[in-house]
Design a protein around this nucleic acid. Structure first.
Lengths: 228, 228
DNA sequence: CGAATACTTGATAGTCCTCAACTCAAGTGG
DNA sequence: CCACTTGAGTTGAGGACTATCAAGTATTCG
């Protein structure tokens, strides 16, 4: 069931003024508060410069926020897991690109005028503020990580963060993204991420069973000591 | 004129529950919207864990937001220049420490309940939202810098950012902070910052006249090429 | 099976940190 | 007035860490 969406794979594509998907055939009405849309593997949710007409809530799957540098480098500012909100902007346009990693269902909410909040929708307003502040806290913690930690510590902190945010008992996780995405998020190369995981495994802190995507956090205390 | 304030210098000090300065003798009234207070060199504006009763606007001087790691490392998340707002929090407490670098005059504003904004004070509310979003954008750009750039490029980007934010024609700047602060902001060591500046000078991109704190941006185009 | 993608491992090189010495300016006290 | 101290900054040598280049293994898909 690969439709035209598959053509959007990869890192190419331009920032159209108003992608066709913004008015899906199944949209309830032009003024509905929100509606759902499913995105395919690697599909772009929005691009840099696209009008920020919506913000998004992840219903399933995982989305990455991607900054592209002129020299071709890529930085993943954040991963957005189920239940999380992303894509809130102050200006009229999105400042970076967002892509579904594997496949994702998103709830699209029409954007609000944040300067003049609707007093009759206080819960939503508070939710948006919370999402924004959480983004800020994450970005600051991320900067701290990138500025002051070595490769293994970055990976340890990343695994702990994922374990806390993903559903489950927190003792084993299924990585929802490839090594390349982790590398571009942690400011490392694919090879260094792989070596760091191997190193953690040899230390007995984690275990890497069959698939490369599942990780057992054998010694969370040791992980926390590294990632602290 | 060194009062008790001087005792607050350095990186030590604990996060008191309610510092005395929060109720200065000269405060107009208990419900005044804001008042001004002067901070000495290195003095703590608030500490990690302090109740976030106010947010702040810089009237003069420069303030640094400092994250302290358990292992003694220091990360400066941001510098706050005249005219800028900082110290806005979602929770009840400040998540990091803020210190005046040389000496600073700050306007202290009583904090608002962001979830239930006063409809009668729309301009202030918008101003706060803008400040928060700007913080977010800065933090994201900072993470990008730390994750994907080399020492010289980081310093170049930092100089350009400062030149744009400080008053003046943008062709020469007076660094309002020591090398150690720059290093802890850029995720480098003092030595590497010094070497980067020397390297930029030898390339003819900048000039370092007499004092070590003044820098002439001789070739902004080249700087932008590095810091881009 | 062949091709493509994802991942791991090894060898080498480059960048930056650490440790150390040195310069410079501003105070301080005899 | 000058020796001494202190803080800030610069410079050098060596080493640690990570990127780069390269090869090899695994898995998936057509």
């Amino acid at each position: 069931m690969q439709t035209e969406l598959a053509a959007n794979r990869g890192r190419n594509g331009s920032a159209g003024a108003m992608p066709g998907w913004m008015r899906p055939a199944g949209a309830p009405s032009d003024q509905a508060p929100w509606f759902t849309r499913v995105f395919g593997r690697g599909e772009r949710v929005f691009g840099e410069g696209d009008p920020a007409a919506f913000f998004y809530r992840v219903k399933s799957g995982v989305v990455r926020s991607v900054h592209l540098l002129r020299d071709g480098q890529r930085q993943i500012a954040a991963f957005h897991l189920p239940g999380e909100i992303f894509g809130i902007e102050s200006g009229a346009a999105h400042r970076f690109r967002a892509e579904a990693i594997e496949g994702a269902a998103l709830a699209l909410h029409r954007r609000l005028d944040f300067g003049r909040p609707a007093p009759d929708d206080e819960p939503l307003h508070r939710q948006i503020m919370t999402a924004m502040i959480r983004s800020l806290e994450r970005a600051e913690a991320h900067a701290l990580l990138l500025g002051r930690k070595h490769a293994v510590d970055r990976v340890a902190a990343f695994l702990l963060d994922l374990a806390a945010r993903l559903p489950g008992d927190g003792h084993s996780i299924e990585l929802p993204m490839p090594r390349a995405d982790i590398a571009d998020h942690l400011g490392l190369t694919i090879e260094t991420v792989s070596r760091s995981l191997t190193s953690l495994e040899r230390s007995g802190v984690i275990a890497l069973p069959a698939g490369r995507r599942s990780i057992a956090l054998s010694d969370k205390a040791a992980l926390a000591r590294l990632g602290a």
